[in-house]
């Protein structure tokens, strides 16, 4: 496509003007105390040691619950758009790929599990761990000589909704026990949060793999 360089189109002019305005606004932002103080004060009843995890799964648990619901909704909307196409090409199998896979997949599983577990005290959490596990799943899907047999549909759906339902169950139990919706008893908070994170990580990993595949599984299996 031939296009004139340095042509000052209206779109470019407006973008530059918007950039200038936004820069003026952003540089002029007044300093604010933010929410670091209130979060630090409430950390003793958060159950976890890392402030971001405390915000995600305790103080603003409702957001994270709906975020898991958004992930599930994305898979449902992709499934409603049709069946998936087969991956167009399969890689040539060889000793290098088998060896790499054999080493990388366990490392990815251990890394993902560690990231979920460490989220309570350091950087990490269900999303980071789930992303690593999901990446391992996508790598496995792409490198096998033929299409990987998927677990039965019921099991897929259970796995997809595991995170949402675990979160919802714990949140509702908190409501019934008098801690408010999505509230935890402080003494149990650590164990409940870790359990939710594990369930969420499994759901997120499965969601990412299914999002990558795109579409419902095909009815007719072509083995060749």
């Amino acid at each position: 496509m031939i296009r004139r360089r340095f042509a000052l189109s209206p779109a470019l002019l407006m973008s530059l003007a918007l950039a200038g305005l936004l820069i003026v606004v952003v540089l002029d932002l007044p300093p604010q105390p933010g929410l670091a103080g209130p979060v630090a004060q409430a950390m003793d009843q958060a159950g976890v040691g890392h402030p971001v995890t405390a915000v995600l799964l305790n103080f603003r648990g409702y957001d994270t619950f709906l975020e898991l619901a958004v992930l599930m909704l994305a898979v449902l909307s992709i499934w409603s758009l049709g069946r998936r196409d087969p991956i167009p090409a399969r890689p040539v199998q060889g000793p290098v790929m088998h060896g790499t896979l054999r080493h990388l997949i366990p490392v990815a599983v251990v890394t993902g599990g560690y990231l979920v577990w460490v989220g309570s005290s350091d950087s990490g959490g269900a999303f980071q761990g789930g992303a690593v596990l999901g990446a391992a799943g996508v790598m496995l899907m792409l490198s096998l000589p033929r299409e990987m047999p998927m677990p039965p549909a019921l099991l897929q759906r259970l796995g997809l909704s595991l995170g949402v339902f675990a979160f919802l169950a714990v949140g509702t139990a908190g409501l019934l026990a008098g801690h408010g919706f999505m509230g935890y008893p402080p003494a149990w908070a650590y164990h409940l949060i870790l359990g939710i994170e594990l369930a969420a990580a499994v759901s997120i990993a499965l969601t990412l793999v299914l999002l990558f595949l795109g579409g419902r599984s095909r009815k007719v299996r072509h083995d060749r």
Binding site: P33, G34, L35, A36, V52, R60, T64, I204
Partner: peptide, 24 residues
């Protein structure tokens, strides 16, 4: 930019945002 150290709430918002962006 906050005065009391790094504010964790925007960080949590960004994680939520990344996940929603990936799904969308």
């Amino acid at each position: 930019r906050g005065e009391g150290g790094i504010d964790p709430v925007p960080h949590a918002l960004v994680i939520t945002g990344i996940v929603v962006a990936v799904s969308a």
